[in-house]
Structure formats: structure tokens, C-alpha cells
Design a protein around this nucleic acid. Structure first.
Lengths: 221, 221
DNA sequence: GGGGGTCTGCGACTTAAGTCTCGCCGCGGA
DNA sequence: TCCGCGGCGAGACTTAAGTCGCAGACCCCC
């Protein structure tokens, strides 16, 4: 792998060429096909990962098989950093939602790097701060918001400008996928769509969600 | 304040006398009466805090006034560390549940300390790792477990040995307090108690919960 | 020793969410 | 072309959770 590629990993961007070169040997590549499982919750943690391309779903499973997605890691995102610092097992499951290329960095190597390079430590602290805020919001959402409101919020997060001043969804989730992101049953997603449609926030165009009005969506929060 | 007291703060325990002495000037004391509010969510963050004595409730509020407790910080615990690293506002509200004595460390001072002392940074990383695990479990609980199951779990966490081989609760919460920890309405707590009593897990002795069997409680998870 | 506020115990009721069961559509592979 | 499968829509039903109202117990404080 090339040193320039290493710079793409957020935690490493300010390191000098020499240390980058040393790190190189601790990094290994992983490729997964759609649906493949990278690791499961509870087993001893091997490494931390950085997404190069594709998306990885980080999720919990209930005893009866229900799925709660914690987040979806895309290009540039890292996951499984927690075990580096407490030595514990993987906190969740990781599965490729599409073909994925990753970098892995073995736990002990990463640990040593952090200890030797305070700048990396600060980088991790910033990233952790963001994750903590994210999870407190997730708790808040689950305990205060209705399903429709959580769906509306997800749609807002997934919205991006299309070229022509309108809104489009960054990616097409199936209803089942949205359900496990939002923490509910598949059928509820369809009903939430209908409710949002009645409010003039979205439109359903041949099984595709089209955002009609960001403001109307925001009103449903 | 005395340097030995500073050592009681987990992040500082391995520092030498000289730096401890420097830190002293950044630390201020706070005392709150029962029910007093220390800070609220969204306002600019002033400082990080360490609990010396008493308990501080860290919680979110819904628009209509419902309360979700994120955690309860007791002696030795820290809170509001997140804004140190991202410069953002307070992520939640903090209120004294009883008379409290705290140490506060101003954000910028703490930030500088972390940057100058890598050992402190590692300490924070370990602490953050623990908090991240805690919150992912909280998300999991909210989305998978029933109210009764969450109550059972809370009781298990609150249980400690009394001298005579039995179990006792570390502290007496009101039902309203438990409800906002567990994320539900007050009445549900009472019903959960009845359900747990019927299973032989607890006993209700004049409005007091007595844990009869840890095993029976664990079965309700 | 009273009295007010807080906490608790119910029961009845409403509502949100989850479950079950279909039938249909659309797409891709055989 | 036809089948099969994954995804979707929809209705009927069940269940968990939340809400409301009120009464009694408790406790602390005057």
C-alpha cells in the first residue's frame, strides 16, 4: 500500500513520512462481498478497520434475531476502535452491505501507535466525542420520538441536493433495512411513509421515496 | 485544594507532584443543593466536572418535558468531558439529585493538559471506550427489551450484598426516578414490580423493593 | 399531632407499535 | 417465456405501553 493512501485515514493525516512508512507494515487489506460478515459481537477483537470503499453495517442482534443498526460506515469511516483501548471483545457485529474494501490495523499495533503519537490520541478523542454525541442522540430518539418521527429524521439525514434544486436520497434502502436502522418492524416503515405522504412531506413514486418538502419533513420531527 | 485530592481524580492519578501542582490552579470547587441544576443541554460548555460526593443526574429532556436519564454520576465519576474535545455545547442536562460537591476544570485548561500529557489522553480514551460500550448497550436495551426486562436489569445493577448473604439495593429510587432511567412512565414501574414479584424475583415490603432471588431476576432479562 | 406534599397502588381506557397473513409487483435467472 | 424470490402494500388483529383519575399511605415539617 502507498503512503499517500495512509494519509487518507483521518487519524494519520498529520504524521510525517517516516512514521507513515512504519505504520504501513501494521496495515492489512480486507475485501468482502455483499452480505459477508466481518466479525460478530462478543468475540475477541482482532483489529480496527477503515472503510476504503463500500459500506459496512454495524449492528446488534436480539436473542430472537431482530437487528438494530448502530450505524453504517462509509468510505473514510472507522469502526471497532473501542477494543483498542479497553482490550474487550467486539462491541457489535459488522457486515458488508455491498462489496467492500477495508484496511485493518491490528489492535496491539494500533495501541502502540496511539501511545507513541499523542497527535493520534487527540484525533481519537475527537472522533470518540462525536460518537458519544451520536449515541446520546440515538438514545434520546428511541425514548422520545415516535416511529414516524424517527423515519422522518432518517430521511432528512439521507437527503442531498440533486442538481436541480430539489432533494434526492443518497442511497436506496429497502424498507427492512430502514426498519432496523430506526429500530422497528418493516410494516411500520410503510405506514410511516403513508403518514408522511399525507402531510405532503414525501411522495411515493413506484416504490421510491421522493422528498417533496424538507420543511414539511422537519415539521414531523 | 490538596495535591492528594487531585490524585483521586482518575485521569490524574499517575502524574508527578509538579504537574499536579500546576493543575491545581485550573480546578475550582462547586457545591450544589439537592435539585439544583448545574447546566443545561445546548448552552456553551464551561467545564468538565468530577464528583467528590453526592450524585449528579445527567439527562435529556423531551419537548413535552419527559426526562430520559443517561446516567447517574457518583463519587469519582466524571461528566461533560465530550465538549473538551469537540468544543461543542453541553450534550445534556446535569442536576444534583442530592447535596453534591464537585470539582470543575475549565474546558480550555483541561484541553491543554491533555495535549501536554499523553498519559492523560490515554486515560480519557479508556474512559470514552467504556462510555461508548455503555451507550451501545443502552440503545440495544431500548430497542430490544420490554419495560419489565429493563427494570429487572436496573435492579440487578443496583443490587449489592448486604452483610448476611442476601441482596439489597444500593440506593432507594422513587418510581418516577426509575421510570426516567429506564425510559418509561411511572405507572409502568409499579406494574413491572408486580410482574417481577409474581415470578418470585422480588418482594414488595411496604413500598420497598427487596430482591428475593438474583437468579429469578436474571431470568427476566 | 395535624396537615400538605410526595409517593404509591390500582383499575379503566386509549393509543402506538408489533404481528400475521395475504396477494401483488417487478426483476432476474433458468 | 415462465417461474421464483425478494420487496412492497394492505387489512385485521394482538399486545405492550402510555394515559387518566383517584384514593390511600407515607413522611416530613411545622
Amino acid at each position: 500500500m502507498l503512503p499517500e493512501q495512509l494519509k487518507a485515514i483521518p487519524y494519520f493525516q498529520y504524521l510525517d513520512a517516516r512514521t507513515l512508512d512504519r505504520i504501513r507494515t501494521s496495515v492489512f487489506e480486507v475485501r468482502l462481498q455483499k452480505g459477508q460478515i466481518l466479525f460478530t459481537e462478543g468475540e475477541p477483537a482482532q483489529a480496527m478497520y477503515v472503510v476504503r470503499s463500500g459500506q459496512v453495517k454495524i449492528f446488534k442482534l436480539s436473542p430472537d434475531g431482530r437487528e438494530q443498526v448502530l450505524r453504517i460506515a462509509g468510505p473514510g469511516d472507522c469502526f471497532n476502535e473501542v477494543p483498542i483501548f479497553d482490550g474487550g471483545p467486539n462491541p457489535a457485529n459488522a457486515q458488508a452491505v455491498e462489496a467492500v474494501a477495508l484496511w485493518g490495523i491490528r489492535r496491539a499495533d494500533m495501541r502502540r501507535l496511539v501511545e507513541e503519537h499523542p497527535a493520534i490520541a487527540i484525533g481519537f478523542l475527537k472522533a470518540f466525542a462525536g460518537k458519544l454525541r451520536y449515541f446520546t442522540r440515538k438514545v434520546e430518539d428511541l425514548s422520545f420520538r415516535s416511529v414516524t418521527s424517527r423515519v422522518a429524521k432518517l430521511l432528512l439525514e439521507m437527503a442531498e441536493d440533486d442538481g436541480k434544486g430539489g432533494l434526492r436520497l443518497k442511497q436506496q434502502f429497502t424498507q427492512q433495512e430502514m426498519a432496523s436502522v430506526v429500530g422497528t418492524a418493516r410494516e411500520m416503515i410503510g405506514r410511516a411513509f403513508k403518514a408522511l405522504e399525507k402531510e405532503g412531506a414525501i411522495r411515493l413514486d413506484r416504490h421510491r421515496v421522493v422528498i417533496v418538502s424538507r420543511a414539511a419533513l422537519a415539521r414531523m420531527l
